[in-house]
């Protein structure tokens, strides 16, 4: 097991910088999820940690060793790829054993480790099958098995669940989290799916345009996003953002050029709420109604902006009607309109 440390890490392709000197410490045993939109640099960062991309500037440390110039195989890390990367011409057993190709263990010890990994991942009955005979989830487990069998200092996951269907993804999320709990190995995990990030991470690293915007535990990122981008990227549905002004502690919708942006999560913006002293009140025309079972999402427009709010499960909100939704005090996030940085709550 090992601590990962990124110090002023830079990646450039020619004159184009894609990672702009990021700093991050991943303590031993932590499960860190890099999340962000496509092209934000999360996979590039992971590949630099793996040694598959050259570092243009700064430093990567694994444990106490600077590994900038160290070959991938010398870093003692295992990586699970988006496309599984399990070899189609080998059986499951051979694929898992391939993780030990350069190991100095005896043949019997290798076989034992493969059996153990197979048992841990529920692959024992499949060990002599070929990857083409397996489902997507089983293939992903083989890829994890091959990574696991080496007892690496850390695991790197590059969007490992993005090729699976929603149900399987949910199941694999639990399996990977459970695996981390049992092995206790440091994990750096890349995804663009904020649900994966929220449910699996000890700490989320939100990235955008080659910068780290925020690195904090999931609920901290959810409750106290540092800027508008993070606020909207984390949480489903996205946080509503409206131009606003604040007078005497009361936030109201702004006309013209605003100095503030007010953000409120759909689950905090309640249709038909009886709150006497709300932090924000919005009134608009309903454009869509989405019953989800335990609750109903109500879409309405305010000053040309689309807003999502929540109504009770069996509400009677009709499309085209006018609704008023209120958010309690303390649940309205304020951002500077110019910098989009967080300014606290109202």
């Amino acid at each position: 097991m090992a601590k990962f440390e990124l110090r002023g890490l830079v990646k450039a392709y020619g004159k184009t910088k894609v990672i702009h000197g990021i700093n991050l410490v991943i303590p031993d045993g932590e499960f860190v999820v890099f999340v962000g939109p496509s092209g934000c640099g999360k996979s590039t960062t992971l590949r630099m940690i793996a040694g598959l991309e050259e570092v243009s500037g700064g430093e990567i440390r694994i444990g106490d060793r600077v590994v900038n110039e160290v070959d991938p195989k010398e870093r003692n890390l295992a990586m699970v790829f988006q496309n599984y990367a399990i070899y189609p011409h080998m059986t499951v057993r051979q694929n898992i054993a391939f993780g030990l190709y350069t190991s100095k263990l005896s043949k019997d010890e290798k076989a034992k480790k493969v059996e153990e990994a197979g048992a841990l991942l529920g692959l024992t009955p499949l060990l002599d099958r070929r990857p083409s005979d397996l489902s997507g989830g089983q293939r992903q487990r083989v890829a994890i098995g091959r990574a696991m069998v080496r007892d690496p200092a850390g695991f790197l996951f590059d969007e490992p669940l993005s090729n699976l269907d929603a149900q399987l993804r949910a199941q694999m999320r639990i399996e990977i989290k459970d695996l981390h709990r049992r092995l206790g190995t440091t994990i750096a995990y890349v995804t663009h799916d904020q649900v994966e990030a929220m449910t699996m991470a000890d700490r989320i690293v939100v990235m955008k345009d080659g910068h780290i915007l925020q690195a904090a535990p999931p609920m901290e990122v959810y409750d106290n996003p540092v800027d508008v981008f993070t606020a909207q990227f984390i949480g489903t549905p996205s946080m509503n953002i409206v131009p606003a002004t604040q007078t005497g502690g009361v936030v109201t919708l702004a006309e013209g050029a605003p100095t503030l942006l007010a953000g409120v999560r759909p689950h905090d913006l309640l249709v038909g709420s009886q709150i006497a002293d709300p932090g924000l009140t919005l009134t608009g025309t309903v454009t869509a109604v989405e019953p989800l079972g335990p609750e109903t999402l109500v879409h309405f427009t305010v000053a040309g902006r689309s807003i999502i709010s929540t109504a009770p499960a069996h509400g009677t909100v009709a499309i085209g009607s006018t609704v008023t939704a209120k958010a309690p005090r303390g649940q309205v996030h304020l951002f500077d309109a110019a910098t989009e940085k967080a300014m606290g709550r109202a």
């Binding site: 793996a50 195989k73 890390l77 790829f81 990367a85 070899y87 391939f98 993780g99 190709y101 350069t102």
Partner: peptide, 27 residues
Amino acid sequence: VPDDFIEAARMDGLNEFTIWWKIAMPL
């Protein structure tokens, strides 16, 4: 041949010649 196969083999500690012979050639 997807690059992931080759990179996975690099992570597994194979040298470039062995990757070509053991991974790329059978594919």
